[in-house]
């Protein structure tokens, strides 16, 4: 076994800044002083590892968490979690959450005047397999209004939380859907300066994961920071 000695620094234009004034909530919450760059010690190079016993195996199918079926267009969302060297990130915990097909979250503070779905929680989790693969079945989330600016609407999206092998590899992001016209107007999506990086947050339509007569498939691969390892590996 090799031990990582550090994780690579982010490619700056591909990660959003802390302050993005068009995203109004960032104005009072983003730190104003520069971050202090620090080396990786054993603290940042380790992290929680979640085993199969911490996962409910069937919860990755969000269409079967209830006695009835949720309303909406059933979809499969699947992909791989890789590191920068395209090595699979195995057995890592992924947590997802999303609005229902009407654009409403099952959260007491979501006051959007759209119906809740008694058969849809909008959340699930899973572990990646030996090749870094994951798969969720869900319904396509709806767009919803928010109060960032006049007539603001979030494009349809699914939140993803991924741990990876270390504190340094932790990532929370959002997956978007291809062809959604609202992306062009969304300050959260457009907080990422690099166009190609933004495009990678948009899932690809994927015939291969489509279930005939049941669900369309979307593919969303996630790349976590790569580690440098000790020369002892070779």
């Amino acid at each position: 076994m090799s031990e990582p000695v550090s994780y690579r620094l982010p490619h700056l234009s591909t990660q959003p800044p802390l302050l993005h004034p068009a995203y109004v909530s960032s104005q009072k919450r983003a730190p104003t002083l520069p971050l202090i760059r620090a080396p990786h010690t054993s603290s940042e190079l380790s992290g929680p590892i979640f085993s199969a016993s911490s996962v409910e195996p069937r919860i990755c199918d969000l269409t079967r968490q209830s006695s009835g079926a949720p309303i909406g267009e059933r979809i499969v969302v699947s992909g791989k979690v890789l590191d920068e060297d395209a090595r699979p990130v195995r057995h890592t915990l992924i947590e997802i959450w999303q609005a229902n097909a009407a654009g409403r979250y099952l959260h007491k503070k979501d006051q959007h005047d759209a119906p809740l779905d008694p058969h849809f929680t909008g959340c699930g989790h899973t572990l990646t397999d030996d090749e870094g693969r994951y798969r969720f079945v869900t319904v396509r989330p709806g767009a919803y209004p928010w109060r960032n600016h006049a007539n603001a609407w979030r494009p349809a999206h699914i939140h993803f939380s991924v741990f990876g092998p270390a504190f340094a590899s932790r990532l929370v992001t959002q997956m978007y859907f291809p062809g959604d016209v609202l992306q062009a107007y969304d300050p959260i999506f457009n907080s990422i300066a690099d166009e190609a990086a933004r495009a990678r947050l948009v899932a690809g339509f994927d015939w291969d994961s489509t279930i005939p007569e049941t669900a369309l498939g979307f593919r969303f691969d996630i790349v976590l920071r790569g580690s440098r390892v000790t020369p002892m590996e070779k």
């Binding site: 591909t14 990660q15 959003p16 890789l82 920068e84 060297d85 939140h159 990532l171 992001t173 790349v223």
Partner: peptide, 9 residues
Amino acid sequence: SLVPTSSQT
């Protein structure tokens, strides 16, 4: 070499 996925809130 792949580029790490962008973070979002």
